[in-house]
Amino acid sequence: MKKRVILCLLCLLLSGCGSDSAAAPDESGRLRVVATVFPAYDFARACGGEHADVTLLLPPGAESHSYEPTPADILAVQECDLFIYLGGESDAWVDTILSAAEPKGQALRMIDCVDLLEEETVEGMEQEHEEEEHGLGQVKEYDEHVWTAPRNAAAVTLAIGAKMAELDGANAGAYTAGAEAYAGEISRLDEAFSAFFETLPDRTMVFGDRFPLRYFAEEYDVNYYAAFPGCSTQTEPSAATIAFLTDKVRAEKISTVWYIEFSNHLVADSIAEATGAKTAMFHSCHNVSQTELDDGATYVTLMEGNLEALRNNLP
């Protein structure tokens, strides 16, 4: 109900905006790109260079699953040349924007750039709808965190570069070169992850948190256990789930319990305390903090940080 009211208010706001109220075109002639999440923002920055103005719609530190767009967000999307979004459950709020804004430019969904995997429920993982365990009325849901596999991130980068080149033919060569250069950096990162995992006799990871890393796990053959799937709206697992994960850590002598960025990591801490394990963060890159943004974080630097964390915390 709340979202319907917000949508109505936004539609009224936009319908009342004459041409004098609309955002002015970029007088510099640069391509205007709006991205909902940090990976798309970072890939577009790398492709666009000096020829594009790229805006991150999701505020630093914000939770994308529960985010509600502002009137300023609506106007930004309406006036941009290219709008890049996930297209999955975690940014369902984008439907509100697209319904109200009617963008003048083009849109690109990241999930259309790669092969998708279904969201997975592994042993011990908390399920939000127990009645769906038997498959009654289930709807196939895909995991939209496609960028967590570097190979996918490179593919999305190239797709963004190609779209930007299409929209701004005068600078097409620069967009293509920028995309290829950044995709090359990401591919080298992929090789580094592959080389690391090849050294491990056991690739088991336990997350006392959501697990938005299905593509990463698939890419490097990681065996994982977690409290919830990546798009779960739940944050407090049942006693049974915590007990299962605790027993798994003990039985397999797992040294580290993982959590993701912006988590309070209370579940991971609880499991670690009960088992004598340590905890560590794996950054899904879905969003960044204001400090990370100010310090120039990129997808590559964040994933390099993950690689270093894996080297320090996996046997």
Rank of each mutant, 00 (worst) to 15 (best):
Y224G: 11
G161C: 04
M205C: 08
E123H: 13
D168C: 04
I271G: 03
I74Q: 01
F244Y: 09
L116Y: 13
G61H: 10
F83Q: 09
D112Q: 05
V156L: 01
R311L: 07
K2N: 11
A274S: 07
E252G: 05
C11I: 13
D26L: 09
E144Q: 06
D295E: 14
A217Y: 01
T256S: 06
A159I: 03
I74V: 07
I186G: 12
A280P: 12
L58Y: 10
A101C: 11
H65T: 12
A76F: 03
A240Y: 11
G184I: 07
Q106F: 01
G88A: 12
G137L: 08
G48V: 01
A183V: 00
R109Y: 10
I97G: 09
L293N: 13
V257T: 03
L56W: 02
G208Y: 06
L86E: 15
N171C: 13
A155Q: 11
E180K: 15
K2M: 13
H283S: 08
G173I: 07
M205V: 03
G169N: 12
E191R: 12
E236N: 14
I6N: 10
A149Q: 10
V206S: 12
S15N: 13
W258E: 12
T233C: 08
T279D: 13
T204K: 09
A44W: 00
D269N: 15
T204V: 01
A153S: 15
A272Y: 13
V33A: 07
N287Q: 10
K140S: 14
Q78H: 13
I97Y: 04
F244C: 02
E185H: 11
R32Q: 06
A165I: 15
L56N: 08
E120P: 02
A52T: 00
G276P: 05
T157W: 00
A162C: 04
C113N: 14
L302E: 15
N312L: 08
V257W: 04
L302W: 02
K253H: 08
P59K: 03
